[in-house]
């Protein structure tokens, strides 16, 4: 059994290496955002200069607000439309239901490069055009399938007898939904909402094809800055969004677990 011990120890060591590989560049970027040298040279000297100049960068700030606004609106729309659709798919039997469920996978499976360029062509062709409204239209479509999948998964744990019991006690359809079903699926709805926010807030490819110079989001702005050359402000803003995204993911994980326990 000594071999087993050694193998287990090797396994733990290996996981440590993988975590180092995953986190090393992220940690280095966070450190460099506090480094004096704008060309990321060592030795390391502490400064918060780049965060200060980030505040002065109106273009980046405007793009950040656009990203936040679009992510929030996307989340609200996706949660409402997605929960409604999930309820319908759960509650009713009808022909073509399997087909409608299968339709949720192309938006997830097709590379964003293809979806993004297709949206650009179509929106341009029918006169929707480009800009923040087009980006919002696209983000909702990308995030909606995730919300429906997550809320539907939560609904699988729901006992339909609860709805019947409420109905037999005299509740109407709306009361049953509001007082019985919605409270039950709430963890799924919140997890789905966090998913939607993350999909929208981190979205680069689709936003990139739909943005115009004045109407853009943070990732698109960062991409443009990276291609122009290195700017330490990008490190600062990147560090901020990595921290925000990871905090959101931790929240999502909490709600998923919450959903699993009940």
């Amino acid at each position: 059994m000594a071999t087993t011990r050694v193998l287990e120890w090797l396994g733990r060591f290996y996981i440590g290496l993988l975590l180092a590989f995953l986190y090393l560049p992220i940690i280095i970027m966070a450190l460099m955002s506090f480094n004096v040298s704008p060309f990321y040279q060592l030795p390391f000297e502490w400064t918060t200069e780049w965060y200060a100049s980030l505040w002065q960068n109106d273009q980046l700030i405007a793009a950040t607000w656009n990203s936040v606004e679009i992510a929030v609106i996307t989340t609200v729309i996706c949660v409402v439309l997605g929960s409604a659709a999930s309820l319908a798919l759960y509650r009713y039997e009808f022909r073509g239901k399997k087909f409608l469920q299968a339709l949720l996978f192309p938006p997830i499976a097709i590379p964003w490069l293809i979806t993004g360029t297709a949206m650009l062509i179509f929106f341009f062709g029918v006169g929707i055009g480009r800009g923040l409204h087009a980006i919002l239209l696209g983000h909702v479509a990308l995030a909606l399938p995730y919300v429906i999948v997550v809320v539907s998964a939560r609904l699988q744990t729901f006992a339909p007898e609860l709805e019947e019991a409420a109905r037999s006690l005299g509740a109407n359809q709306w009361q049953v939904t509001r007082r019985v079903t919605l409270p039950w699926i709430m963890p799924g709805v919140i997890a789905g909402g966090l998913f939607a926010f993350a999909v929208s807030f981190d979205q680069f490819v689709v936003s990139y094809f739909l943005a115009t110079p004045g109407q853009t989001t943070l990732p698109v702005e960062i991409y443009a800055a990276i291609r122009k050359g290195f700017t330490p402000e990008i490190n600062a803003v990147s560090t901020i969004i990595i921290v925000v995204s990871m905090a959101l993911m931790l929240l999502t994980a909490r709600f998923f677990k919450f959903g699993g326990e009940k």
Binding site: F204, P219, I226, S245, M249
Partner: peptide, 9 residues
Amino acid sequence: WSNGLVRIF
């Protein structure tokens, strides 16, 4: 779950 673009950068 962190921004892919930022991680590449």
